[in-house]
Design a protein around this nucleic acid. Sequence first.
DNA 1: CGAAAGCATGAACGTATATTCAGATATTCG
DNA 2: CGAATATCTGAATATACGTTCATGCTTTCG
Lengths: 125, 125
Amino acid sequence: MTARAKSAPQTTENHCSKHHALASHPAAKLPPLTVMESQRMGEFFALLADPTRLRLVSLLAADEFCVCDLASSLSMTESAISHQLRALRAARLVSYRKEGRQVFYRLHDHHVLELYQTVREHLEE
Amino acid sequence: MTARAKSAPQTTENHCSKHHALASHPAAKLPPLTVMESQRMGEFFALLADPTRLRLVSLLAADEFCVCDLASSLSMTESAISHQLRALRAARLVSYRKEGRQVFYRLHDHHVLELYQTVREHLEE
DNA sequence: CGAAAGCATGAACGTATATTCAGATATTCG
DNA sequence: CGAATATCTGAATATACGTTCATGCTTTCG
């Protein structure tokens, strides 16, 4: 049983490399992402990687809504919506306004709207 | 033990709603996302939600690279890189070119590059 | 041909995450 | 004040996902 073929666990050694002069792309300006930068950027994209959150954004792209309206629009529980809005809030993608016992959410700034619209158009082909 | 308080399992009923005339945002053009659209869009963002894939994109934004170079640049196994490249390939975010026993990857089109650069600039503040 | 390099792939394991459930907080109204 | 409404929150469960491990495939070279 203990026969474990140890196939040189694919360590990271630069065997090949240096094959062609760095032609560099037309738009090659920024240096590669560091680990930390990539993690931060990944967290940003992860926020928009959820269908529920995206539908919330698409609703808020048109108007301001309270939690219960958002919940009924998406046919989901208010609890689930509230959890997702919290994530969007923490990342400053949405902001909110309290009016009585209701809380109205809206997109925080135009950056989010623009990014959403850009990607949406890109996926419509 | 079986005392389960049935706290009206938060069904989806439109109790409130209709509070204000639909003022509609300045840039309110597109209808809300359907479930299927949001899933598809979510899959797109999910691809860019991983630090490793983002670092790959950031490298490929500057030039074309083979798998082993990408692996050594990120200090990761070629297997892990290959798996991630497959995901990027399946979504047509990267394309590749075989040369001998090496495979050179590059960004598939300028859309990806532009989106990456836009978001990166947006996160640098 | 046979060995090694470069890359791809399937299974498995560990972790992250979205929803549900139960309950808490805050506000309005009788 | 007490009940109802609107929202938030923590814990738990189920599922998705990334890496590792082992192996297969293709090409190059002796």
